[in-house]
Design a binder for these strands. Structure first.
Length: 482
RNA sequence: GGCCCUGUCGUCUAGUGGACUAGGACACCGGCCCUUCAAGCCGGAGACACGGGUUCGAAUCCCGUCAGGGUCACCA
């Protein structure tokens, strides 16, 4: 088994693929699937391919294709062959491979493994509902299997166009899944799938098989939701006389309510994460650990370390619930301990625009999301602060500030150290405990009772702004009294 | 409803018949630090879905029950 896994069925190089359909943004589940394919290819010095499955003409959009590629690049999941890169097995967009599917369909026709179906979508829908109502499995009854030429002509004159169905050979099919082990299916329980739609475009199950074969894919790594497609696809491979690739069905990522992840759960697309202030290294690290475990008592791994450790033996076979909080912790850890200042700065600037490097330097140890740096900068830059005086002891605050404002003027703002010393001096001079001085000061400077360390806040603001803000607060406090 | 997959702290997981008084991480709670709030450090609470087997011995193997998820499209 080991040898098969590593060499693949074609005995050569490992070739994996990520095959998204451009009908929406890349979400966290897709990213994880892409990542696992990438990891496995890299681990085995193989090739990772990006294939665009755009056979759904109505829903596929060029712009989504671009978005998906951008998000993948942001995560640094780079493909070796793909629509933008080319390769020896292209084109890599299914809409550009129609001629190939036609040829393969003809083979199936010749072998008698397919038949024309003239049923309309409405008819099929009614049929399905009826079966479900009778609590029977909704399986196509093969009513078009033995149509005479005359009947076909009749349908055609009615204006119907045929689709092509694959004739499922009824048998007990057994196959080995790299993660779930042996899987046994009674194929008589499977409907004959439509492989070419009446508009001449192939459907997923057919195009996928044809491409996986012609692109020499050795390992299909995809989500568990495809488990039930696998027997259909294996049967099509067999009908075509092709060896099928090895399958690894990875567990799904579920939302906190334990259902399939969807837009309504929020923060599920890679782009959303980016905008929220996540760093790609953290997202990749977190996502890699969803359904895979290196079985060590640590969780922070560089992509190189993950590649070295990646192995199907370590992929779990049960679904994982997506937890944004934990991913935030990873983000915090990467910002605070792993990433270099320059890199963090670049990420913030990609997201926002120019940022004062000092903010990152001074605050990276406590930040969870990149956007916090931006908030600090905006708070610092603000000309006129409006104070929310509702939950604050105005009298006490202004009392203290009035007392110390002159000493504040004399503070040495040239370094953080001198500021710290000066602040201590003020505490001593007026006999103030830390919170007694810090709370009012912090509030006057930032309209908040929490945030960046106070001496740093003063340092970043500079003397002029500090005095200005304290005075502004004092004014606001006076007005509030009246 | 049929079929398929799955069930260890709230969540991610370690565990492959004895080293399990079930380990780690996030979150939570408490303490320390004290330059507030945080961050950091230290500590605490918290799980083998249930019931039968097999075995000297089961979280680990088998069966059943229950629960969750997926899928049954001219979507992928």
């Amino acid at each position: 088994m080991r040898i098969i896994i590593e060499k693949g069925v074609f005995g050569g190089m490992v070739r994996t693929r990520f095959a998204p359909s451009p009908t929406g943004y890349l979400h966290i589940g897709g990213a994880r699937t892409a990542l696992f394919n990438f990891l496995f290819a890299k681990k085995n010095n193989g090739v990772f391919i990006l294939r665009i499955e755009d056979t759904d003409l109505e829903r596929s959009k060029q712009e989504y294709e671009g978005n998906i590629m951008d998000d993948l690049k942001w995560l640094k999941i780079e493909w070796d062959e793909g629509p933008d890169k080319g390769g020896n097995f292209g084109p890599y967009r299914q809409s550009e491979r129609l001629e190939l599917y036609k040829q393969e369909l003809n083979k199936l026709i010749e072998k008698g493994m397919t038949y024309e179906c003239y049923c309309t979508e409405e008819e099929l829908e009614i049929q399905r509902k009826l079966q479900l109502k009778e609590k029977k499995p909704p399986i196509y009854d093969r009513r078009c299997l033995n149509l005479t030429e005359k009947q076909k002509q009749q349908f055609i004159t009615e204006g119907r166009k045929p689709s092509f169905r694959f004739l499922i050979p009824h048998q007990i099919l057994e196959y080995e899944d790299l993660i779930h082990g042996k899987i046994k299916v009674d194929t008589s329980l499977i409907s004959d799938p439509i492989i070419v739609k009446s508009n001449g475009i192939p459907t997923y199950n057919f195009a996928c098989v044809v491409d996986d074969y012609h692109m020499k894919i050795t390992h299909v790594i995809r989500g568990d939701e495809h488990l039930d497609n696998t027997p259909r696809q294996i049967l099509i491979f067999q009908a075509l006389g092709y060896q099928h690739p090895l399958y690894a069905h990875i567990p799904m990522i579920l939302a906190p309510d334990r259902t399939k992840l969807s837009k309504r759960h929020g923060a599920t697309s890679v782009n959303e994460l980016k905008v929220m202030g996540f760093v790609p290294e953290a997202v990749v690290n977190y996502v890699a650990l969803l359904g895979w475990s290196p079985k060590e008592n640590r969780e922070v791994f560089s992509i190189q370390e993950i590649i070295e450790r990646f192995d199907f033996d370590h992929i779990l076979d049960h679904p994982a619930v997506y937890d944004l909080e934990k991913m935030k912790w990873f983000n915090h850890y990467y910002i605070s301990n792993v990433l270099e200042l320059e890199k963090i700065k670049k990420y913030v600037e990609d997201l926002y625009g120019p940022i004062n490097e000092k903010i990152i330097e001074l605050e990276k140890h406590r930040v969870y999301l990149l956007t916090e740096f931006i908030e600090i900068q905006e708070m610092l830059d603000k000309d006129e602060i409006e104070y929310d005086l509702g939950n604050v002891d105005i009298a006490a605050f202004s009392d203290v500030l009035r007392k110390v404002i002159n000493s504040l003027q004399n503070l040495d703002f040239s370094s953080l150290e001198s500021l710290k010393e000066g602040l201590k001096g003020i505490q001593k001079e007026y006999n103030l405990k830390t919170p007694q001085l810090y709370k009012p000061l912090r509030f006057a400077l930032s309209n908040s009772l929490e945030g960046i360390e106070l001496p740093k806040l003063l340092y970043l603001l500079g003397k002029e702004k500090v005095i200005k803000r304290v005075n502004r607060f004092l004014n606001a406090a006076d007005k509030a009294k009246v």
